[in-house]
């Protein structure tokens, strides 16, 4: 099913991240993803927005915003997160090793790993002075 683009803008604050999650859950359901895939989209957007707020906007006092765009085509549900934090490609950052023993682990740093695990595709671009992170979930049953 092709759809128009839905959009939500949230302030760059942790307390607004849940609004982004609710929006993506609603749009993913509308697009026809199953419950498990919807949950994956919710968690991926939670991790991505939290990362932007905690790291990208850390020194800027919450004056920034994140734009969330959702649309779908016959094969995929597509989420794009756009922010004006300094250029930062989260997908090329070193990831923690899930096989590491406890003593070799730091406590956090799992957000980007989760995004890559949960989504079928994740791509990053920087243009128009903004970070663009695109997350894709494929429909399991592709219509003929």
């Amino acid at each position: 099913m092709n759809s128009g683009v839905s959009h939500l803008r949230i302030a760059g604050l942790l307390e607004q991240v849940a609004l982004a999650c609710e929006f993506v859950v609603q749009e993913a359901r509308k697009a026809g993803l199953d419950d498990h895939a919807v949950y994956h989209c919710e968690l991926a957007v939670d991790e991505a927005c939290t990362n932007i707020v905690e790291h990208g906007f850390r020194l800027r006092g919450g004056q920034q915003s994140i734009d969330i765009f959702c649309h779908s085509d016959s094969r995929r549900f597509i989420i794009t997160l756009v922010d004006d934090a300094p250029p930062f490609n989260p997908l090329t950052q070193a990831e923690p090793d899930p096989r590491a023993p406890l003593e070799q682990r730091s406590s956090g740093g799992w957000g980007i790993h989760f995004i890559k695990q949960l989504m079928d595709e994740a791509t990053y671009q920087y243009h128009d002075n903004r970070n663009h992170l695109t997350l894709v979930k494929f429909f399991r049953d592709i219509p003929n």
Binding site: E42, E47, T50, L102, R105, S107, G108, W110, G111, F114
Partner: peptide
Amino acid sequence: YMSSAGLREIVSALK
């Protein structure tokens, strides 16, 4: 529902 923020706290406690 638990995001990585929750994991961070329980791993810190375990350490």
